[in-house]
């Protein structure tokens, strides 16, 4: 379980996160939803210790993040994390070199599923294919937790469908996933839990099926209520 406990984050005088708390379970897809602002990405960066927080605590299976955690949790940012001059195969070799959790079989499987050519240079890839390579590099790690920043934004509809398909497959199953989005439409039925963020605070954290069952509301209904309140 990833526990985010009352974290605050200031950029200069501006409070980007103002006491954010939520949890994300293993085997569930948790979605951080925010219609604007930088808070969502900052939360993911904070979980990965890629940006310091001013107060609060983040625990991964009860522990603070350390160097060994990166074999258990990984982050797929919205831009690719490899050098543009690398070929896809170079990027995969780099990953294999440094991570014990790297799973080459799974990487090859993803390569063919996404119909990517390992000899292509990252700099020459289309936006959609760059996003897929980025996904591949994260998904091919045998980690317990996967964080993804806006995996569906800025790419074509077919790439989006392919990536959505990944979410319902064995590639994601049993892992804990946190994704961020500002657009819930595509993934309404994919997620377990929604965390609504606004102005640095969590407005509501709920299980999507539960809200449908007990309140008869869609995620967007809840968003409408919460954001316009």
């Amino acid at each position: 379980m990833i526990e985010v406990k009352d974290i605050t984050k200031k950029f200069g005088r501006k409070k980007v996160l103002n006491g954010v708390s939520f949890t994300a379970n293993k085997g569930e897809i948790t979605c951080l939803i925010g219609i604007n602002g930088v808070g969502k990405t900052t939360v993911l960066n904070a979980i990965m210790n890629l940006t310091p927080i001013n107060s609060g605590e983040i625990l991964i299976d009860g522990n603070k993040i350390n160097k060994d955690s990166y074999e258990k949790i990984t982050f797929i940012p919205d831009a690719i994390t490899m050098l543009p001059s690398m070929k896809i195969s170079d990027a995969m070799t780099f990953m294999a070199d440094f991570y014990n959790a790297w799973n080459q079989t799974r990487a090859d499987e993803l390569l063919s599923f996404f119909k990517l050519d390992a000899n292509e240079r990252i700099s020459s890839l289309s936006k959609g294919n760059t996003a897929k390579v980025n996904m591949l590099l994260g998904l091919a790690l045998d980690v317990d937790y996967l964080l993804m920043d806006e995996p569906f934004s800025g790419i074509d509809i077919f790439s989006r469908e392919q990536i959505a398909e990944v979410f319902t497959s064995h590639l994601v199953e049993d892992r804990g996933v946190i994704i961020t989005t500002h657009e819930i439409n595509d993934i309404e039925h994919l997620i377990d839990k929604a965390v609504l963020l606004n102005d640095g605070v969590v407005l509501r954290e709920f299980n999507a099926e539960e809200v449908r069952e007990t309140e008869g509301k869609s995620i967007i209904d809840v968003m409408r209520e919460v954001y316009h309140a």
Partner: peptide, 17 residues
């Protein structure tokens, strides 16, 4: 349940349920 989730593009936990 996984095939079902995959076909319907729904959460695997939902298919399981």
């Amino acid at each position: 349940r996984r095939e079902l989730a995959n076909q319907l593009k729904i959460n695997p936990n939902t298919a399981q349920r």
